[in-house]
Nucleic acid binder design. Sequence first.
DNA 1: TCTCCTTCTAACTGGTTAGTTACAAATCTC
DNA 2: GAGATTTGTAACTAACCAGTTAGAAGGAGA
Lengths: 179, 179
Amino acid sequence: MARDAATTRARILEAATTEFAARGIAGARVDRIADLAGCNKALLYTYFGNKEQLFDAVFAGLVRRLVVDNPIDAEHLDEYAGRLLDYNAAHPEIVRLALWDRLERDGAGMRSAELLATDAAKAAAIAEAQSRGVVSTRFSPETAMGLITVISSMLPFVQPADGARLRAAVTTAVDRLLR
Amino acid sequence: MARDAATTRARILEAATTEFAARGIAGARVDRIADLAGCNKALLYTYFGNKEQLFDAVFAGLVRRLVVDNPIDAEHLDEYAGRLLDYNAAHPEIVRLALWDRLERDGAGMRSAELLATDAAKAAAIAEAQSRGVVSTRFSPETAMGLITVISSMLPFVQPADGARLRAAVTTAVDRLLR
DNA sequence: TCTCCTTCTAACTGGTTAGTTACAAATCTC
DNA sequence: GAGATTTGTAACTAACCAGTTAGAAGGAGA
């Protein structure tokens, strides 16, 4: 076994992502994560503290990547929503983890100063686009963001297996709502 | 103690609703449900079989009430969405239970023949309204239902504490999308 | 090669949990 | 009011599970 702390940490995070996405915090089993990561259970505790802190690490990492990989484009919110949809299709764990976080911890993982700041920045970008007349003022910037989130992230969740038609529906909906 | 099977069953269902809505299936504790219902744990098993079947009973009952209490009005889908929003605000357990069901059981509770039939009936009502020109044909009936669901049930979930402004946003959004 | 430090493991622990059982008490029937 | 049935309980059990511990194995520097 490659004795390398960084690699082992990464393997644990990957295994934990799978397990937490599938079963949530209460349903996840520490032994299952260790088995999947191919390492001893005790390492989870030396590297991450405990089960919930491991969830924190997993979730914070994925959310950070989601935010970095999907910068907002307030001029073309429909395409932004389409890209979010594609991203969620390619990384189905993220939406599931976010839902577990809301349900099991009242959204504790979404309240980091960092994430609140990027949320505020997105709202500001929309507000600015509204002031220039590029985006409709029908909705507040915050509500507009909420609508985009809900349509791009939750619609495939309540309507599974819709495929290519779904993407058209998402961009059409966002265009219709916010232009 | 009032020795009455029907009443006891009802108390168990009520307690289980609270516990399952708060913690999900994996997180729920059978002892906690029994305590809250003020009865012996063994009664849950004599009346409902096991923990998961108890969840089934809780969820099926609430979904049935939701469907009965909120008939679709394809002529005024914006108001229909507004009513769903109000209903969810008054009964916050339902959305949570539906999410637990999706996450923990891949939506098994939403696949009853009864519920599939009412879903089909709703889609048919929308299709009929579309053919009369009352509802836009921008989206398929199924996608239209999905959009209504997501906006009336999930928007308050991702945007907590918005209040009266939220209702206006929901009706405006549905009107804009489907009229 | 000796020593120190990091990485890793097997085995254990104490508390928890879903589900069961054997039995008691209330209610119903006749 | 006797006997059968329904409704309820206390105590138990076997499995499970998060977290710990004591110490082994590997590597780096001298």
